[in-house]
Design a protein around this nucleic acid. Structure first.
Lengths: 172, 172
DNA sequence: AATGAACTGTTCGGAAATGAACTATCATAC
DNA sequence: GTATGATAGTTCATTTCCGAACAGTTCATT
């Protein structure tokens, strides 16, 4: 991994330290928000009798407009290990929140669809008092519209980059 | 939880939907970055023979300038369950990365200090090729300085708010 | 100073998550 | 066609994590 051009009057060491400081700062910044989100998701999940992977899976499929997605795709998007995915999906299917059926034309893949019961459940969960959306809706009020837009924009830039990096290189 | 004033000409339903959409959008936005970070942290941790909680603990203490912190404080900042914390700290102490000693004047609390060996280890880990800092340093280049500053600012606003909310209300 | 309540951290049993081996299906080459 | 390798998902053994009960310490009240 090679370093970028160093500006005049700035030693390589200083530049490195500066970059290290910034990367630490950014990580810390994400972490301070993230720990709160994760904690909340965990709370919401267990309150509704789901494991965190299960909640993640439901959310992931739901985001996909169609409310259906192959198990493979869910794995790619969530990075959950195959075995975890399999168990979690199994539980969701038993609860009747998901239906599983083999993909037309490729019997290896499983098509996962959110059932009516699953949609009901999600709706109820999200509207519940103290739910994550209630929290986030008021959290957003902390930001101006402009700040909000720019936050999304920056996140997009970062996630696109991170995705491109980790896809290619060896993070199995 | 009560709703805010609805603007003229906008029905309550529309306003709710709009807010719900935004909260979903924001969650999704964070999630797209987070999943990459988490995945990386996990990789770095296991490559260096640490569990994720252990890595989290080391990072947390390190951020505290002094390189020392009570176990209680670490728990408050990381939200790790007490038992997990206890085990993880135990492992770190056995590795010789942390030293444990009772706090002067309150023998209930444990003061955790990063040892020289621990500092060495952290330094080596962070400079390693493909490490999280290398990744993040280049990720930052995706943003302009202004975008970077505003990202931090927005995160601070959000985390401060989330922290204040979850401290008071009943997320044990 | 004695009692009880609140707190910090540890221990332990059970639950959740994971890696590795496995089964079934599909794709390619011969 | 069938042999080989790749892919998607499941199963199982192991590890990791966490809630609850616990032990020791401190604080407040009497």
């Amino acid at each position: 991994m090679n370093y970028h051009t160093v500006e005049k009057g700035e030693s390589l060491m200083d530049n490195d330290n500066h970059k290290l400081a910034r990367s630490t700062q950014l990580l810390r910044s994400f972490w301070s928000v993230q720990k709160n989100i994760v904690r909340f998701v965990q709370k919401i999940a267990v309150e509704n009798g789901l494991s965190v992977p299960q909640y993640t899976i439901l959310m992931t499929i739901t985001l996909n407009k169609e409310m259906k997605m192959t198990q493979k795709k869910v794995g790619e998007q969530t990075f959950l290990p195959k075995s975890t995915l399999s168990h979690a999906v199994d539980g969701l299917a038993q609860e009747g929140f998901l239906s599983r059926q083999q993909v037309e034309g490729n019997r290896r893949e499983m098509e996962l669809t959110v059932t009516e019961k699953g949609k009901e459940f999600l709706k109820k969960m999200h509207l519940q008092d103290g739910g994550i959306h209630q929290l986030f809706q008021t959290a957003i009020d902390q930001l101006t519209d402009k700040q909000y837009e720019e936050l999304l924009e920056s996140h997009l830039l970062l996630s696109t980059y991170l995705e491109s990096q980790t896809a290619g290189n060896g993070v199995k």
